[in-house]
Write a protein that binds this DNA or RNA. Sequence first.
DNA 1: GTCCAGGCTCTTT
DNA 2: AAAGAGCATGGA
Length: 284
Amino acid sequence: MVAIEAKDFDIKAILDCGQSFRWHEISQTDFIGVAGGQVLRVTQAGSHVSFHTSQEAYEGFWKHYFDMDRDYGKVKKALLKTAPELEDAIVFGSGIRILNQDLFEMLITFILSANNHIPRIRDLVRKLSETYGSPIDHPWEDLVGKQYSFPTPEQLQRATIADLRALGMGYRDSYVFHSTEKVMENISDFYGLLELPYEEAKKKLLSFSGVGPKVADCILLFSASAHEAFPIDTWIKKTLERRYKVNLNQTRALQEFIDEKFGIYKGFAQQYLFYFERENERRS
DNA sequence: GTCCAGGCTCTTT
DNA sequence: AAAGAGCATGGA
Protein backbone atom coordinates (compact mmCIF):
# COMPACT_ATOMS: atom_id res chain seq x y z
CA MET A 1 0.00 0.00 0.00
CA VAL A 2 1.11 3.52 -0.80
CA ALA A 3 0.05 6.23 1.63
CA ILE A 4 0.61 9.88 0.85
CA GLU A 5 -0.31 13.32 2.06
CA ALA A 6 -2.00 15.08 -0.82
CA LYS A 7 -3.06 18.65 -1.36
CA ASP A 8 -5.89 19.46 -3.75
CA PHE A 9 -7.11 15.88 -3.85
CA ASP A 10 -10.74 14.81 -3.37
CA ILE A 11 -11.27 11.29 -4.62
CA LYS A 12 -15.02 11.69 -5.00
CA ALA A 13 -14.74 14.92 -6.96
CA ILE A 14 -12.04 13.42 -9.18
CA LEU A 15 -13.93 10.26 -10.02
CA ASP A 16 -17.42 11.69 -10.08
CA CYS A 17 -16.88 14.71 -12.30
CA GLY A 18 -17.63 12.93 -15.55
CA GLN A 19 -14.15 12.21 -16.84
CA SER A 20 -13.98 8.50 -16.00
CA PHE A 21 -16.71 5.87 -16.09
CA ARG A 22 -14.84 2.94 -14.62
CA TRP A 23 -14.98 3.51 -10.86
CA HIS A 24 -17.23 2.01 -8.23
CA GLU A 25 -18.14 4.22 -5.30
CA ILE A 26 -17.95 2.10 -2.15
CA SER A 27 -18.34 5.25 -0.10
CA GLN A 28 -17.54 8.92 -0.63
CA THR A 29 -13.99 8.23 0.46
CA ASP A 30 -13.52 4.73 -0.94
CA PHE A 31 -13.37 3.87 -4.66
CA ILE A 32 -12.40 0.81 -6.71
CA GLY A 33 -11.71 1.06 -10.41
CA VAL A 34 -9.83 -0.13 -13.46
CA ALA A 35 -7.15 1.48 -15.60
CA GLY A 36 -4.00 0.36 -17.34
CA GLY A 37 -4.95 -3.30 -16.96
CA GLN A 38 -4.98 -2.96 -13.17
CA VAL A 39 -7.59 -2.73 -10.46
CA LEU A 40 -7.01 -0.11 -7.78
CA ARG A 41 -8.67 0.80 -4.54
CA VAL A 42 -8.27 4.34 -3.26
CA THR A 43 -9.31 5.43 0.21
CA GLN A 44 -9.10 8.90 1.64
CA ALA A 45 -9.29 10.49 5.08
CA GLY A 46 -8.76 14.21 4.85
CA SER A 47 -5.44 14.86 3.15
CA HIS A 48 -4.38 11.29 3.87
CA VAL A 49 -4.76 9.23 0.69
CA SER A 50 -4.10 5.50 0.40
CA PHE A 51 -3.51 3.74 -2.90
CA HIS A 52 -4.01 0.03 -2.29
CA THR A 53 -1.29 -1.16 -4.64
CA SER A 54 2.47 -1.62 -4.79
CA GLN A 55 5.01 1.19 -4.76
CA GLU A 56 6.06 0.12 -8.26
CA ALA A 57 2.56 0.27 -9.65
CA TYR A 58 2.00 3.65 -8.05
CA GLU A 59 5.21 5.17 -9.32
CA GLY A 60 4.95 3.47 -12.70
CA PHE A 61 1.32 4.15 -13.48
CA TRP A 62 -1.12 5.59 -10.96
CA LYS A 63 0.91 8.63 -10.04
CA HIS A 64 0.67 9.86 -13.61
CA TYR A 65 -2.93 8.68 -13.95
CA PHE A 66 -3.95 10.94 -11.06
CA ASP A 67 -1.78 13.79 -12.36
CA MET A 68 0.06 13.92 -9.04
CA ASP A 69 2.97 15.97 -10.34
CA ARG A 70 0.80 18.98 -11.11
CA ASP A 71 0.43 21.85 -8.64
CA TYR A 72 -3.33 22.46 -8.63
CA GLY A 73 -2.92 25.30 -6.17
CA LYS A 74 -1.12 27.15 -8.92
CA VAL A 75 -3.80 26.27 -11.48
CA LYS A 76 -6.60 27.55 -9.26
CA LYS A 77 -4.72 30.72 -8.42
CA ALA A 78 -4.12 31.47 -12.09
CA LEU A 79 -7.78 30.89 -12.93
CA LEU A 80 -9.02 33.11 -10.11
CA LYS A 81 -6.84 35.91 -11.37
CA THR A 82 -8.65 36.21 -14.71
CA ALA A 83 -11.97 34.77 -13.53
CA PRO A 84 -12.52 35.65 -9.82
CA GLU A 85 -16.22 34.89 -10.17
CA LEU A 86 -15.28 31.21 -10.51
CA GLU A 87 -14.54 31.05 -6.81
CA ASP A 88 -17.73 29.22 -5.86
CA ALA A 89 -17.13 26.49 -8.44
CA ILE A 90 -13.43 26.20 -7.61
CA VAL A 91 -14.08 25.94 -3.89
CA PHE A 92 -16.78 23.38 -4.49
CA GLY A 93 -14.61 21.23 -6.78
CA SER A 94 -11.40 22.11 -5.02
CA GLY A 95 -10.05 18.57 -5.03
CA ILE A 96 -10.65 17.85 -8.70
CA ARG A 97 -7.70 16.59 -10.70
CA ILE A 98 -7.76 15.86 -14.40
CA LEU A 99 -6.80 12.27 -15.05
CA ASN A 100 -4.37 10.98 -17.65
CA GLN A 101 -6.33 8.12 -19.21
CA ASP A 102 -5.77 5.90 -22.22
CA LEU A 103 -6.31 7.57 -25.57
CA PHE A 104 -8.22 4.72 -27.21
CA GLU A 105 -10.42 4.25 -24.17
CA MET A 106 -11.28 7.96 -24.21
CA LEU A 107 -11.96 7.86 -27.96
CA ILE A 108 -14.53 5.09 -27.65
CA THR A 109 -15.96 6.25 -24.32
CA PHE A 110 -16.66 9.76 -25.52
CA ILE A 111 -18.06 8.58 -28.84
CA LEU A 112 -20.55 6.72 -26.65
CA SER A 113 -21.15 9.82 -24.54
CA ALA A 114 -22.76 11.81 -27.34
CA ASN A 115 -26.43 12.54 -26.70
CA ASN A 116 -26.42 10.06 -23.84
CA HIS A 117 -26.88 9.95 -20.07
CA ILE A 118 -23.89 9.42 -17.79
CA PRO A 119 -25.28 6.27 -16.08
CA ARG A 120 -25.88 4.73 -19.48
CA ILE A 121 -22.40 5.63 -20.71
CA ARG A 122 -21.02 3.89 -17.65
CA ASP A 123 -23.13 0.84 -18.39
CA LEU A 124 -22.00 0.64 -22.01
CA VAL A 125 -18.32 1.00 -21.09
CA ARG A 126 -18.74 -1.79 -18.55
CA LYS A 127 -20.40 -4.06 -21.09
CA LEU A 128 -17.71 -3.37 -23.68
CA SER A 129 -15.03 -4.24 -21.13
CA GLU A 130 -16.76 -7.40 -19.96
CA THR A 131 -17.33 -8.59 -23.51
CA TYR A 132 -14.07 -7.66 -25.22
CA GLY A 133 -11.57 -6.80 -22.47
CA SER A 134 -9.44 -9.09 -20.31
CA PRO A 135 -10.32 -10.25 -16.80
CA ILE A 136 -8.14 -8.92 -14.00
CA ASP A 137 -7.56 -10.68 -10.70
CA HIS A 138 -8.02 -8.47 -7.66
CA PRO A 139 -8.79 -8.77 -3.93
CA TRP A 140 -12.15 -6.96 -3.84
CA GLU A 141 -14.45 -9.25 -5.80
CA ASP A 142 -16.85 -9.42 -2.86
CA LEU A 143 -17.37 -5.67 -3.26
CA VAL A 144 -17.35 -5.06 -7.02
CA GLY A 145 -17.28 -8.49 -8.67
CA LYS A 146 -14.98 -9.50 -11.47
CA GLN A 147 -13.25 -6.64 -13.27
CA TYR A 148 -12.16 -6.35 -16.90
CA SER A 149 -9.73 -4.06 -18.67
CA PHE A 150 -11.09 -1.77 -21.35
CA PRO A 151 -10.59 -3.54 -24.70
CA THR A 152 -7.51 -2.73 -26.75
CA PRO A 153 -8.06 -1.74 -30.40
CA GLU A 154 -7.14 -5.31 -31.36
CA GLN A 155 -9.70 -6.75 -28.98
CA LEU A 156 -12.46 -4.39 -30.02
CA GLN A 157 -11.85 -5.11 -33.68
CA ARG A 158 -13.38 -8.54 -33.11
CA ALA A 159 -16.79 -6.91 -32.72
CA THR A 160 -19.09 -6.48 -35.70
CA ILE A 161 -21.51 -3.57 -35.99
CA ALA A 162 -24.33 -5.96 -35.09
CA ASP A 163 -22.42 -7.14 -32.00
CA LEU A 164 -22.04 -3.55 -30.87
CA ARG A 165 -25.69 -2.77 -31.53
CA ALA A 166 -26.65 -5.78 -29.41
CA LEU A 167 -24.82 -4.23 -26.45
CA GLY A 168 -27.31 -1.36 -26.57
CA MET A 169 -25.25 1.51 -27.90
CA GLY A 170 -27.84 2.42 -30.54
CA TYR A 171 -26.76 4.30 -33.65
CA ARG A 172 -23.28 4.83 -32.18
CA ASP A 173 -22.41 1.25 -33.17
CA SER A 174 -21.03 2.22 -36.59
CA TYR A 175 -19.10 5.15 -35.11
CA VAL A 176 -17.33 2.81 -32.69
CA PHE A 177 -16.75 0.24 -35.40
CA HIS A 178 -15.28 2.61 -37.98
CA SER A 179 -13.20 4.53 -35.48
CA THR A 180 -11.69 1.29 -34.19
CA GLU A 181 -10.98 0.29 -37.77
CA LYS A 182 -9.24 3.63 -38.39
CA VAL A 183 -7.11 3.27 -35.25
CA MET A 184 -6.07 -0.23 -36.34
CA GLU A 185 -4.88 1.10 -39.71
CA ASN A 186 -1.98 2.73 -37.88
CA ILE A 187 -1.87 2.37 -34.13
CA SER A 188 1.43 4.18 -33.59
CA ASP A 189 0.18 7.10 -35.66
CA PHE A 190 -2.94 7.19 -33.47
CA TYR A 191 -1.00 7.24 -30.22
CA GLY A 192 1.31 9.80 -31.82
CA LEU A 193 -1.58 12.21 -31.31
CA LEU A 194 -0.45 12.54 -27.72
CA GLU A 195 2.72 14.31 -28.83
CA LEU A 196 1.03 16.80 -31.16
CA PRO A 197 0.04 20.36 -30.32
CA TYR A 198 -3.60 20.67 -29.27
CA GLU A 199 -4.94 22.15 -32.51
CA GLU A 200 -3.27 19.52 -34.71
CA ALA A 201 -4.35 16.65 -32.50
CA LYS A 202 -7.92 17.94 -32.48
CA LYS A 203 -7.97 18.25 -36.25
CA LYS A 204 -6.88 14.60 -36.56
CA LEU A 205 -9.49 13.41 -34.07
CA LEU A 206 -12.24 15.21 -35.97
CA SER A 207 -11.62 12.86 -38.89
CA PHE A 208 -12.79 9.91 -36.78
CA SER A 209 -16.36 8.74 -37.14
CA GLY A 210 -18.57 9.98 -34.30
CA VAL A 211 -16.06 12.57 -33.15
CA GLY A 212 -17.10 16.22 -33.26
CA PRO A 213 -15.65 19.28 -31.51
CA LYS A 214 -17.00 18.45 -28.06
CA VAL A 215 -15.97 14.80 -28.07
CA ALA A 216 -12.52 15.66 -29.45
CA ASP A 217 -12.00 18.14 -26.61
CA CYS A 218 -12.98 15.54 -24.00
CA ILE A 219 -10.61 12.99 -25.49
CA LEU A 220 -7.70 15.43 -25.49
CA LEU A 221 -8.43 16.86 -22.06
CA PHE A 222 -8.74 13.49 -20.35
CA SER A 223 -5.94 11.59 -22.09
CA ALA A 224 -3.44 14.11 -23.39
CA SER A 225 -3.23 16.72 -20.61
CA ALA A 226 -4.58 19.16 -23.18
CA HIS A 227 -5.83 21.72 -20.71
CA GLU A 228 -6.39 24.22 -23.51
CA ALA A 229 -9.36 22.05 -24.52
CA PHE A 230 -12.74 23.35 -23.36
CA PRO A 231 -15.50 20.83 -24.13
CA ILE A 232 -18.81 22.62 -24.68
CA ASP A 233 -21.73 20.39 -23.74
CA THR A 234 -25.29 20.95 -22.60
CA TRP A 235 -24.30 21.57 -18.97
CA ILE A 236 -21.58 24.07 -19.79
CA LYS A 237 -23.93 25.88 -22.13
CA LYS A 238 -26.39 26.35 -19.31
CA THR A 239 -23.65 27.65 -17.02
CA LEU A 240 -22.14 30.03 -19.53
CA GLU A 241 -25.54 31.40 -20.41
CA ARG A 242 -26.49 31.98 -16.82
CA ARG A 243 -23.18 33.24 -15.44
CA TYR A 244 -21.95 35.29 -18.37
CA LYS A 245 -25.03 35.98 -20.51
CA VAL A 246 -23.12 34.87 -23.60
CA ASN A 247 -24.70 34.13 -26.95
CA LEU A 248 -24.09 30.45 -27.60
CA ASN A 249 -24.89 30.70 -31.29
CA GLN A 250 -21.95 32.94 -32.09
CA THR A 251 -19.33 30.24 -32.11
CA ARG A 252 -16.31 32.42 -32.85
CA ALA A 253 -17.17 35.12 -30.34
CA LEU A 254 -17.85 32.44 -27.74
CA GLN A 255 -14.45 30.85 -28.33
CA GLU A 256 -12.73 34.21 -27.98
CA PHE A 257 -14.59 34.89 -24.76
CA ILE A 258 -13.53 31.54 -23.32
CA ASP A 259 -9.90 32.03 -24.35
CA GLU A 260 -9.74 35.45 -22.79
CA LYS A 261 -11.63 34.54 -19.65
CA PHE A 262 -9.95 31.27 -18.72
CA GLY A 263 -6.61 31.46 -20.54
CA ILE A 264 -4.30 28.49 -20.82
CA TYR A 265 -6.02 26.64 -17.98
CA LYS A 266 -9.49 26.68 -19.50
CA GLY A 267 -9.77 22.89 -19.41
CA PHE A 268 -9.60 22.98 -15.62
CA ALA A 269 -12.11 25.82 -15.51
CA GLN A 270 -14.46 23.76 -17.63
CA GLN A 271 -14.20 20.86 -15.22
CA TYR A 272 -14.86 22.99 -12.11
CA LEU A 273 -17.89 24.51 -13.84
CA PHE A 274 -19.21 21.18 -15.08
CA TYR A 275 -18.97 19.54 -11.67
CA PHE A 276 -20.49 22.53 -9.89
CA GLU A 277 -23.40 22.83 -12.30
CA ARG A 278 -24.21 19.14 -12.35
CA GLU A 279 -23.93 18.51 -8.62
CA ASN A 280 -26.12 21.49 -7.81
CA GLU A 281 -28.81 20.36 -10.18
CA ARG A 282 -28.72 16.89 -8.62
CA ARG A 283 -29.48 18.37 -5.22
CA SER A 284 -32.25 20.68 -6.31
C1' DG B 1 -46.77 10.00 -23.35
C1' DT B 2 -43.05 13.72 -23.78
C1' DC B 3 -38.53 15.39 -22.92
C1' DC B 4 -33.75 14.92 -22.60
C1' DA B 5 -28.91 13.23 -22.31
C1' DG B 6 -20.88 15.33 -21.50
C1' DG B 7 -23.64 15.65 -29.95
C1' DC B 8 -22.74 13.97 -34.46
C1' DT B 9 -23.75 13.28 -39.46
C1' DC B 10 -25.86 14.64 -43.38
C1' DT B 11 -28.51 17.82 -45.98
C1' DT B 12 -30.17 22.25 -47.09
C1' DT B 13 -29.83 27.33 -47.13
C1' DA C 1 -20.70 29.49 -42.29
C1' DA C 2 -24.94 28.40 -40.30
C1' DA C 3 -29.23 26.07 -39.36
C1' DG C 4 -32.30 21.88 -39.21
C1' DA C 5 -33.73 16.96 -39.31
C1' DG C 6 -32.83 12.56 -37.70
C1' DC C 7 -30.81 9.60 -34.80
C1' DA C 8 -31.05 4.39 -30.66
C1' DT C 9 -31.79 3.94 -26.06
C1' DG C 10 -33.47 4.38 -21.46
C1' DG C 11 -34.35 7.34 -17.37
C1' DA C 12 -37.07 11.14 -15.42
